[in-house]
Design a protein around this nucleic acid. Structure first.
Lengths: 144, 144
DNA sequence: GTATCTGCAAATGTTTTGCACTCCA
DNA sequence: TGGAGTGCAAAACATTTGCAGATAC
């Protein structure tokens, strides 16, 4: 994992969203901002717990939902559970049908010129999602 | 609701997928094939129950999952639950952030020229989803 | 001190499974 | 009579909430 955001940057990001900085929020922000495979709430909790950082599932939940409201992260509905994506530059997603992990894909369809209204429905965002097997699950398949 | 598929057509569709025709399967297929707002399993069950057609939730579940395996319907992960779309011509979806209902949108991005491989991941489908408020929820908002 | 933050434990709601019963070839 | 179809009741999960105690400003 490439550490794109260090503690100082994360503190500034949270402050930029008027979110008070707490140790728990830093922990969660660090994971979500630096993760390539957008983790679920459960996975964030597991990652932190395994690395000795104590936090409850509920707190991860509260923090992620707060980040979501603030606009720091976006919810991605994957195979079985929601995953969360730090929402910085426009991009698409690849969802693995087997493991459910979500990978970023460079945006190929411009996000700027989608219709703002379709049949009386007001459109505020557009998502492009690719589905298939990730490289890891592809290899697992070959082994069988 | 425009009745696009009558019983005979549905029987043929099921047979085309080598699915044995039973009264329950006909009921579910009729709903899912002729629905504009792609219903959830629960909604299909409710629609049938309210119209006096007896079927259990489990059977709707079994049938939808069988249709999904066969390729008749596709799962759409909406707001809180999965919805199911009879998968006939390529199109996009509009998901209402408020009520979670899913509406069809004429495909604007061609489904044919997406990459078959991205960074070792094999791509087999592409979905374009618009998010916003449907016309009904738009109106509800105005009333407040 | 008081509002915020945290987290246990329980509730909720959807999805899934186990198993027994029914039905028809 | 046996395999497929059905459905009740319960399990399995992810998600969400209530509430009480801890923390920080």
């Amino acid at each position: 994992m490439i550490e794109l955001y260090d503690k100082d940057k994360i503190v500034n990001i949270l402050k930029g969203y008027s979110i008070r900085v707490t140790p728990n929020r830093l922990k969660v922000a660090e994971i979500i901002l630096n993760s390539e495979v957008h983790p679920s709430i459960d996975e964030i909790h597991t990652i932190l717990t395994k690395s000795g950082k104590n936090i409850s599932f509920t707190s991860v939940y509260n923090i992620i939902k707060m980040f979501q409201s603030a606009g720091i992260v976006k919810e991605i509905k994957s195979k079985d559970r929601s995953r969360y994506d730090a929402n910085l530059k426009p991009h698409s997603h690849f969802i693995c049908k087997n493991c459910g992990r979500v990978f970023d894909v460079d945006m190929e369809i411009t996000n700027s010129n989608f219709p703002t209204s379709i049949n009386g429905m007001s459109v505020d965002s557009l998502e492009v999602t690719y589905y298939g097997l990730c490289s890891e699950c592809n290899n697992d398949n070959k082994d069988n």
